[in-house]
Design a protein around this nucleic acid. Sequence first.
DNA 1: TTTCACCTACCAAGTGATAGATAGATTATT
DNA 2: AATAATCTATCTATCACTTGGTAGGTGAAA
Lengths: 187, 187
Amino acid sequence: MTIDKVDTKNKIQDVAERLIVQGGYGAFSFRDIAEEVGIKSASVHYHYPTKGDLAAAVMVRYTEVFSRRLPDPNDETLNPNTMLNGFIDGFKAKIVDHHNMSLCTMLTADKHRLPEAVSTALADFYQVKLEWLTQVFMRFEPSLEDQAKIQSIQFLAALHGASVLVQATDNAEFFEKAMSCWRKAHI
Amino acid sequence: MTIDKVDTKNKIQDVAERLIVQGGYGAFSFRDIAEEVGIKSASVHYHYPTKGDLAAAVMVRYTEVFSRRLPDPNDETLNPNTMLNGFIDGFKAKIVDHHNMSLCTMLTADKHRLPEAVSTALADFYQVKLEWLTQVFMRFEPSLEDQAKIQSIQFLAALHGASVLVQATDNAEFFEKAMSCWRKAHI
DNA sequence: TTTCACCTACCAAGTGATAGATAGATTATT
DNA sequence: AATAATCTATCTATCACTTGGTAGGTGAAA
């Protein structure tokens, strides 16, 4: 695979990701993407035969990039509270501050009309997040895995719910208020 | 306004509401609605000139019906914990158990392409919920309105976030786990 | 006779997807 | 080294279909 091809594929995914974030699965079209990338829509089909292929690729890449950025939850030099705060801050900076909802929330809303490859990639992404959070919460009570799992669910629900509230009401203050119970003193 | 007209308008709203819940703002078309109601798409336009008019009407009706069903938060014969549990149960029965997300979450995801009337109606709906919840939380500590407001935000975020998690992963257990910290003993 | 609630018949724009052509690069064969 | 075959990434052109919306007609009710 040539550099050019990788480049074009990445550009296509970049635009697709942005359009999905802005309007969901229904709001990105091969023509819109083609125009922004500077090719024709048939060429987008060359790289990603169907809409589902492209959306699934975007979701998979998103998960990979996301995973790579997460610190090792068992790194003893890192305070678990610092990691949780970082997780919240990252979400806020990337999503809430841009007056958007996350790629995964957008695709979740479109679940009913998602090709299977996309909803599988979507479920995988949530699994990655929950597993990481569980590891972090276990740092507080290493013996209580079940409790850590429940905490990770509550934490993630709060985060996503907070972004819904902010987006629906245009009131950014709701974010910190919703997350305040999870923000604890750290180093 | 004749009974017939009211009837048709209601039927149109019923179908529109269901289609929005299933696929968001982009997933309901005048033709689909017309077919289910048993009229032609031009006739749907007769009742609701534009798509935005119809969606706004659906959102307003939804808020009205919802408000009417809420018990008086200051009714001394009702335990506030019972009311909170009822709120959670109602959400679960209407939305989560049907493998759907709520009308408001779906429209929130489409916020960027919503006509203004719709997003106004949407924000109003969240306001209604937050105000009711605040009243209920104040029953515990009548003097701490600010704390009650924050609790209502956290509660609502948890509820909406929980439904996102369930929908994305197809794992219904996440709902009760996410809400467990809000379910308290009552009568 | 006017209003109501519906109709038929459109329109322009946009959708995902396909067929087939082409210029240039790569690879295989002589 | 020269030629032939193949592959790559793009193009043009088009298909069948859906979308929100409109113009103008029709029969029944007020």
